[in-house]
Simulated assay, not measured.
Amino acid sequence: MKDNLQKESKKLLLIDDDPNLILLVKDYLEFRGYNVISAENGKQALNILQQEIPDMIICDVMMPEVDGYSLVQQIRENSQTSSIPIMLLSAKGQSQDRVKGLNIGADVYMVKPFEPEELVAQVESTLKQINRLKGQVNQEGKAPPTIQIPHQVDLTPTEQRVIYLLAQGMANQEIAQSLNVSKRTIESHVSNMLNKTSLHNRTELARWAMENNLA
């Protein structure tokens, strides 16, 4: 009962141009106690985000007008929405497709078709990780501590700075501005660190950084 009461305050934005998928996923999420807002495409989603800030966004990749990749980029470049966790849904399951989705700023990449229960579990896991990170983030303005790198993972000095800022909740664009480099450079560093650590997304990378005193 307590768990459901906590979920009722969690608002999710579900974006997909397939009405059947929206109905199916929305039913599962609402049954688990979430408040779900839906949008048929990226343009409609951007209009909703001007009025409401959800706790998490679940978005299809292949959509008309504004596709999922473009939508994620716009969300990450907006300071009002840049920290919202995002799950991408796609029928493309190749490694390069996953890497692209994660590099542009998605926290989770799920391949269609999927079991609704698995999606719900991913949503719950991501929100729990985000809440944990929020409780551990250093106070704003605090100087970065000396970073101790575990011996099994060899990060470059630049990667150390990137992962510190990533763990503070900064988007790739914000990190790029902070380090005075291009966003593509930051995306490359994030991709390299995911490969080195064998982690799956930015959220796991940030959590790993916290647990290993990298942030």
Rank of each mutant, 00 (worst) to 15 (best):
M62N: 12
D154L: 08
L165P: 02
G141Y: 14
V108F: 09
I58A: 05
D17T: 13
E159K: 09
Q74P: 11
L88D: 08
L49Q: 09
T81D: 15
Q173Y: 07
R98W: 12
I130Y: 02
V153Q: 04
E204T: 02
K134E: 15
L71A: 08
N213V: 01
L88G: 04
Q96P: 00
E30V: 07
P113K: 01
I37K: 10
Y109A: 02
E65A: 05
I104Q: 08
V190I: 15
R161F: 04
L71R: 04
A143L: 15
I130P: 01
E159D: 12
M193I: 12
V162L: 05
G42V: 09
P113L: 08
V108S: 02
D154V: 10
Q6V: 13
L24N: 03
Q122T: 07
Q96Y: 15
I37C: 07
L89A: 01
Q50M: 05
A106N: 06
M1H: 13
I58H: 04
M1W: 08
V72E: 06
L24H: 01
Q173F: 12
N212P: 04
S188G: 05
Q152S: 10
D16R: 06
P85Q: 13
Q129N: 10
A167I: 04
I163R: 01
V120W: 07
V162R: 01
I149T: 15
R32A: 14
N195H: 05
N180S: 10
R32E: 08
G105D: 10
N78T: 06
D27R: 15
I104Y: 08
R76N: 06
Q74K: 15
R202T: 06
I48T: 09
L133P: 00
D3V: 05
G101C: 02
M170R: 09
A171H: 07
L194G: 00
G135W: 12
D107I: 00
V181Q: 11
L13F: 07
A215E: 03
L155A: 14
A91I: 13
E40K: 10
N138M: 14
A106E: 03
S83V: 12
P113E: 04
D55V: 00
V99A: 10
N138H: 15
Y34H: 01
D18Y: 03
W208Q: 00
N180C: 04
L119E: 07
K196Y: 02
Q94K: 15
T81P: 12
N212T: 01
S198K: 13
I15H: 06
Q173A: 14
L214E: 05
N41Y: 04
S70P: 03
K100Q: 06
L88C: 01
Y69L: 14
R132K: 09
A106G: 08
T156A: 13
R132N: 09
K142D: 14
I22S: 06
V111W: 10
D67R: 04
A209C: 04
Y164R: 05
Q50N: 11
